[in-house]
Structure formats: C-alpha cells, structure tokens
Write a protein that binds this DNA or RNA. Structure first.
Lengths: 333, 333
DNA sequence: CTGTTAGCGCGTTCAC
DNA sequence: GTGAACGCGCTAACAG
C-alpha cells in the first residue's frame, strides 16, 4: 500500500522524483530529498523487492545448493555452520540466501538452472554434491556462477573454497612422527570425494617426506561412516598389530575408531593414538578428547558468499581459496 | 528472455492465452494448450516468480525468524532440524522458506514487519525468541501471521507448535519414582522461557501426584548452560546428599550434571540417576548414555510450516498443537 | 474459446 | 531539477 506512488502523491512530486530521491540520485535537490525521505519514514515505506527486481532484471539472491540432507547426521552441523557463515555475509551485503535442496520430487521435474531462473537466483554456493549427482553435472556445463565448497571445479564461472587438506594432513602426520609414531594408518572417507583424495595425498606425501614407506594395507576407506570406521579399525589392528597411530579423515570416523580400539581393550593414546578431522562438537566430548583438524566451516560459508558476490559483480576471483584451519592437539595423541 | 510474450509470438496466440494455458485455465482449448506447452518446453520456459508475485500482490514465501545464532552451540542442531522440517514441507507445497535472523545491524534499522513486506513474506515461523526481544514484542502487536515453536502466543494470527512438556516431564518423574527414587531434583533452564515453566510444572505436578513434597532447595536454574549446570549440580549434591536422581531440562545441562556427579566420585546411575531433555546427538555419546525425552524438532518445523500455510489460506487452526515426543530410556537411570 | 486493456511497484530514458 | 512515458513479466477483468 505504501508505494512510491503513494509517497509521490503525499509529497506533491512525481513518482520518478521519489524513486530518484530514495535511491539518492545526484540530480534531485537536497531539499526535496529531505522532504521525501521524511514522508517515506512517516508512512513506514518499504521498497518492494519483487518490483525492483523485475524492473532491474536481476536480483540480489544467491542459492545454497545442498544434496539431500540427513538431518540426524552430524553432517547437519557442518552444513548449518556453512549456512550461517554465508547468511551473515549476505545480510551485510543486502543479499538474500535461499536454500536449494535436491528434493527427489523436484529433481525429476526441474533442473537447477530452471529453479534459479524462476527465483531470479543469480549464482549459487554448492556443498556436499558428488560427481554423478544431476545438479553437479549440470553446473559444470551450465553458465550459472557457482562457488563450490570442498569441491574443485574449473571454469570461468566456477571457483572453490576449501581447507588446505594436503597441508593439514601433512601437519598431522608430522606431529605423530614427532611423537615417535612410525606405523601410522589412514582411515579415509569416500574415495570419490575430492577432499578424501587430498587428505590421502597429504598422508602419502608426508610419509614419503619422512622417509616412511606407505603400505596400502594401512589405508582403509570407511566412507565417512562411524560404524564402518569401527569395523575397519578392528580389521586394521588385527591384521597389523604394530600400528600405533591412526589418522581418520573425519571426527565421526575417529570416534568409531576410538570405540574399536577401546573395545579391543587397548588404550588411547598409550597404545593407539587417534587424530580426526573437522572439529565437530562431538570431538570435545569423547574420552579422551579428540585431537583434530578444526575446519572453519562458518568461515568457508562466508568466504564462499563473498567470492560469489564478487564474481557476480564482475570482479576476478581466484580459482581456489583456502580458509585457515586449526590443528587442535588434545589427549588422543 | 523466454517469457510468455516470446512464447505467444512463437505460437501465434496472445500473451493472455499463453498465461491461461500454462496455468491450466479451463477456458482454453486442449488443442492450443498442448501446442503452447510444447513450445514452452522447447524454449525452456521458466515462469518469473517476481513478476507473478508482483501481479498477484502476494507470494508463497514464509520466513523463519531466529534469534541471534551462536553457531558453535548445540542449539544450532536443533535449529537446523526445525529448518529442515519446515523447508521440506514448504518444498512440497511450492512455498519458499527464508531465514530471518535478528542481525544486530538490521534490528536497529528495520522492523520485522518491514523486512517481511520488502520480501513479500506473508507469514513467519518463530523460534528461540524470548519476551523482551524486539521482534518478539512486535509480533504480538502486529498482524503478521506467525507460528511460534515452543512459545505460547495468543491472538487471531498467532498459534503454537510445541512438545507437551508437562506430560513428558511427568512421565520422566513417574519413571524415576518407579525405579525407587524419592529425592528427585530439577535443574531447569532459563526461568523466563516458556518451556522451562512447563517443564517445572510437570515436575511439580508429578511429584504432588506421587505424594512427594516438592522442596524448593531441589530446584536450580542453569539457564541451559552446560557449565552452569555442572556447578549447580555440585551445589545441589553437596547441600542435599540424599538426592538420588536429577532431571535436567536439557541434554546439555544433563551432560554438565553428569560431569559434576562423576567428578565428585559418584557413579551414574547407581548413586545418582540422570535424565535429560531434547535428544541431541551428544546424548548418544555420553558414558553412560543419557536417558532423555527426544523431541521431534524436524516434526515441529514441519508442523509449524503446515500450520502457517493453512492459516495463510484462511483455514482455522488450533491455538496449540503438540508434536509427539519419545521417552528414550537408557543407562543413565 | 480468444484477445484487448489495464495494472502490480519500480527504474530509466528523454524531454521539459 | 523535475516529470511524463515506457517497460520489466505476469495476471485479471472484460469484451468480443
């Protein structure tokens, strides 16, 4: 009801002038600007985004594309932090953040690009999608600006925000080496996931640099499942009792490993040292508390939003940006 | 670019007819409908929501109003589940869910109603706001349709979705009584919060019904903080060593209490039994695992969205709806 | 059954 | 400095 038209009438000027004044154009006298703003204030005027977006042909909306969310998962915690980071930055820049979850129903009927066009979404942040997911494949071919979190993408309209996984894992392995460990195993996540590959690379590189032979028998994949990590750890320790330290590519897997180790009657860290990755809340509550690489998920969300908004405004952005991590050493090593 | 206008030209009919066909109006011949849909498909046509909303003067957008979010908090987990529940329902009904967080900066400059008008938001779900928060006060006076989660509000455009806290706590106390406990203490959350009051009411009612005198010394407030709960528990047990069971109004406080009990060299549950509330992930990982009232946060989010959308479409809705909880009994009692 | 006209609220030429 | 006129994409009332 309280549109610029209404304000125009009430002020006795034209709609155009009101629009210009409210957008602080230089070609309106200070006097009329003052008057118009005053009246706008009085009326509790609020611009209508839909109309503005329509007129401008664009909008300040970006999307956060998530794969199907298992809300019970501790994964949710990570997603939430990314969400909050991105959301906060958007709020500062007067952007809107819309969650786009690959709902099964919608996936069949609408492509990501369609979804975005409908809602005037000019770019997206992507997290948790894997090669093979329809939206993932689409984004590499489409022209939709996209910042991926933890996935390396190449293309003019694509960029990445991530943790320097290789450096982080190298630091972990070096630390374990410093503590005297030589037989260090790796429980990795899903092989196909980008970050898993980088974490394994960090493991292999560090071992080589330290002059330790990498044994394939020391590497297991538990696909980021706690239960699976528990089983794999038992296999690992039964087959290779000389192992004194295990690096797990996620905290949840490390907790599974801890359960296995303790279940076998061995002590952490005296007999087997454990290190996780992520820095989720649970890592604070295990006994002993978990040594882990703390990722700054909120920072990654923020960085992703920042990067996307820059990209949308035509600025050049780096192909990859690393968000600082923090190696938190505690009682599990 | 591919608007209904374009489709109209390419099909040789008028814009109106295209609009009607695409919206499946009855007064367009099947033949032309078919033709138009075909062309629309070809062009990869996608309706422009902004334009539609503008023309319709309304929109299918609802907001999720949250108080300032401490992303480190396990509170985040709860919020996230509510969010997912609401989001999923919205997706089914072709509604959009927008997060509105009471950012400090925005709070001074814009009222909630303004924020909503700007974005064409027709109603909101509210969680985590307390009496005294500006947005909270505003909602009770404004006319914005609002479903509050865990807060009882009265008004034509207001309704509530919550857990039946009184019933749940009564069940807890009765269970403890069945196990032989008579000296049962309560560590409650922030006194001002609605749910705290209901949980205390449940406690008091159950005790009375069981013929046990309620001692004020047995009731402490730890404001939902883990650390504070730890301290209060120590005070409680030192002053009243006869206490054999403590019900905490949140899992996080129960974990604090557990730390206190175990830190005092007492065993859970043999010497002190503990029960929490919420059913957060951490409750699965404590040792012993926590007995708790599992709230269905996702269900509450979903119920809130459903209720709001019904309200918006003019249906009558109950003043309060209870979402079923589940009393999960484990080793801590 | 189909098309014409008008309008949603706002931004932007281009005259005055 | 100011305003009239037009268009963004779509829907609704009315006329044919």
């Amino acid at each position: 009801m309280s549109s610029i038209k209404y304000i125009a009438e009430r002020t006795g000027v034209s709609i155009t002038t009101v629009s210009k004044a409210l957008n602080n154009y230089p070609d309106v006298s200070e006097e009329t600007k003052r008057k118009i703003r005053e009246v706008a204030e009085e009326c509790g005027y609020t611009p209508n985004m839909a109309a503005r977006n329509l007129a401008l042909g664009k909008s300040n909306i970006i999307g956060l594309v998530l794969s199907e969310i298992r809300e019970t998962d501790s994964n949710g915690n990570i997603i939430f932090r990314i969400l909050i980071g991105a959301k906060n930055y958007c709020a500062e820049k007067d952007f809107e953040l819309l969650i786009i979850s690959t709902d099964i129903k919608k996936q069949r009927s609408k492509t990501l690009v369609q979804l975005c066009k409908e809602r005037q979404i000019s770019g997206v942040i992507m997290y948790g999608l894997k090669p093979g997911d329809p939206y993932f494949e689409e984004i590499t071919k489409a022209e939709l600006p996209c910042i991926a979190v933890d996935i390396k993408l190449k293309g003019r309209h694509l960029a990445t925000v991530t943790t320097d996984n290789v450096a982080a894992v190298k630091e972990v392995i070096r630390q374990l080496h410093d503590k005297g460990h030589r037989n260090i195993a790796l429980i990795n996540g899903l092989k196909e996931v980008d970050v898993s590959q980088y974490r394994e690379l960090g493991y292999r590189t560090a071992m080589q640099e330290l002059g330790i032979e990498v044994k394939d028998a020391y590497i297991k994949y538990a696909d980021y499942y706690e239960e699976l990590a528990c089983e794999k750890t038992k296999e690992l320790l039964n087959a290779n009792p000389e192992i004194t330290a295990i690096f797990c590519a996620s905290d949840l897997m490390a907790l599974g490993a801890m359960r296995a180790v303790q279940g076998m009657g061995k002590r952490v860290p005296e007999e087997v040292a454990l290190v996780g990755f992520d820095g989720i809340q649970l890592s604070d509550y295990s006994n002993p508390r978990l040594t882990t690489v703390v990722q700054d998920f909120k920072g990654m969300g923020r960085a992703a939003a920042e990067k996307l908004i820059k990209m949308l405004s035509g600025e050049n952005v780096n192909e990859v940006d690393y968000v600082p991590y923090h190696f938190r050493i505690r009682e599990s090593i």
